[in-house]
Design a protein around this nucleic acid. Sequence first.
DNA 1: GTGAAAGCGCTAACAG
DNA 2: CTGTTAGCGCTTTCAC
Lengths: 400, 400
Amino acid sequence: MWGVAEERADEWLERENVFRILRGRVILVKAKGIRGRMGDPSRHRQKPGKRLLMKKRPTIRDVAALAGVSIATVSKFINSTQRFTAGVERKIQAAIDELEYHSNPLARSMITGKTGAVGVAILDISNPHFTNIVKGANRVALEHGYNLLFVDTEESQAREDELLIALSRRVDGLIVSTRMPEEQLHRVLGFGKPVVFSGRPAPKGSPSIAVDAYAAAYMIGELLVKQGHRNIAYAGFAPARPDTERMRGLSECLQTHGLPLTRFEVRGPTIVEGEQVCAGIVLRKDRPDAVVCYNDMVAIGFMSVAKSLGISIPDDMSVVGIDNIPFGRFTSPALTTVDTQSERLGEEGMRMLFREIAGEQTSEAGHVLIEPRLVMRDSTRVRHSEAAAASIAKARKRAR
Amino acid sequence: MWGVAEERADEWLERENVFRILRGRVILVKAKGIRGRMGDPSRHRQKPGKRLLMKKRPTIRDVAALAGVSIATVSKFINSTQRFTAGVERKIQAAIDELEYHSNPLARSMITGKTGAVGVAILDISNPHFTNIVKGANRVALEHGYNLLFVDTEESQAREDELLIALSRRVDGLIVSTRMPEEQLHRVLGFGKPVVFSGRPAPKGSPSIAVDAYAAAYMIGELLVKQGHRNIAYAGFAPARPDTERMRGLSECLQTHGLPLTRFEVRGPTIVEGEQVCAGIVLRKDRPDAVVCYNDMVAIGFMSVAKSLGISIPDDMSVVGIDNIPFGRFTSPALTTVDTQSERLGEEGMRMLFREIAGEQTSEAGHVLIEPRLVMRDSTRVRHSEAAAASIAKARKRAR
DNA sequence: GTGAAAGCGCTAACAG
DNA sequence: CTGTTAGCGCTTTCAC
């Protein structure tokens, strides 16, 4: 039947008079304007934007002059560091309003040493795990009246150092996710700004926050064992920090039950790599009856290819992810995973950062672990053993 | 069978000696350190971080002193605005290396008026459409040696103005997505910084970039009609800018074919709202044979609930999304959608912004439209008419 | 080629 | 209460 294949159908429609981006280039297709939007070409002669740029922004001096007071007075008024007589305050406010004055944060920062911004460096904004960290971090930053700067280091790994340095100089503190080797982390601390490391333990003396990867993996191991799986594989991603802990949690758990663990490697924590690794796992003669994926992205790619190889999940094989990205609910089958509470990670990380910025050296500094939670859906199922099923049923009841 | 229901199973594992975040609070569970990571409590007395903050960063003056030259010389050397005798350059470089000097971008910005950063204001980083815009924008920004600042306005709609102002003062230009009424956009332009509006046409004189929403919707209309659908619904989200164009594209297309369009409203461009709106559409006696969703998120939610209501997609009903978010491939059935090329939108938008920053007023300024592409997957199918099927088959052949 | 001096826009003592 | 003064760290003429 048609419709199953994925394809693109361009050019179904004839349109015109539009600047289009076609085959990677911006080209002008005719020049008459479409639905009145393009406007007449004459406006280009106006140097749009330029005109606006010309209008110099008013400075504190302009305000002071217009209000007939000194700039110091204006400064104090703006920062509400001092009250003045009603008349003066009214005049200043009027001047500010009239000039539409807004203070220049850069100038202020230079003196105060505070920037009013915090930074987040993450590995890949496309990964919902990191997206949610940013979301959470941003929320808390805004609550504190701070702006958020962000750097996606994946985009330019070679320049990670440079990027972090540049970022650090623009902010009052940063949250950093990095695969940088342990021995180089001190460089980040050397920036002289408060730092919270995320996703890995920090060097002694600095705070960090991460999900308890060991526990997450251990939970998954327990689940799979209780469900009766006996031949379990882990599709890991060694370069990532949490990989070690996940591997250890899983293997220690299985070891407790006298079960082996087979390890496979993906080349990235992505859907594509999950797709790549799949065949090598499901087509081997000793096919695992369950595979734990480095994260949900890998699991999604894995399940997709498995399906196309005629492997039924969970009937032929169980699949588990890690992270609980929002879309895991909508795969087919819905993905069993462990919730790493990414958004909360971002929120708590930012709170820690603000505590550090405020100079509070509470006893909480250190490595904060976020508790993972098992999210059971349909990509795993009970195998063989009746006993296992019963035990799980009990667990479910307890969980309510 | 068990395993179908989604549930969380906490506390399967007994762990200890960890700072955990449990039930929303950070609590300390014992204090002995886990696997050697927590370290001894004594380090808290060291005021970690504080010590590092003490170490003042070297300034250009320090470098000049150490190198035995004037600060002006150092400045010119750093900015490569002038060459010096080899000996001098070597000494300066040595001093820089020894002190690990990095120039303070804030101080530089104050003088040059350039910040070396660009800003992106988006509506919701959780929406993969925007995530990809940021991804693309960030890539281009980095290529140009710029940092990216970002603001998620959804997080604080009430403060949108304030956020944009603060952002604008820290950057050399910004890309703005906003639902702000037309008549308020001039305020954004009033910031005096180059702006590219994304997702909507800009006021006269400023550049903007968007996917051609009209074309996208028109394409979908054509597809559905050719597939033989006769009772088509649109689950729109009126507050969003592209909604109008999508609605218009769809209805004009259907009108051409003498077909009606029924409109429904979602209360947000999210999965949850797609779930909410579903029942009201599929349970009405005159059930549509196809529903076009405001975006992929809505479509995903919609399909999920439809399935649970016993509606088979695409057999009972076709569903189409817009955006082509990465996860649309992995829903069940895979989602037919229109690719809005979000990442490219971000890239091109940033390129436009840099052109504007550079002061190039090319003839390209204006409203740039990105060409959408139909992505046919499995959530739509041919209905009834043999003729339609044949015509589609021909279209497919042409598309190859 | 190199350096002295004048600020960028603002804050933070300290005077008055 | 209000103003004066001295910079923050850097760039940028303009002399030497």
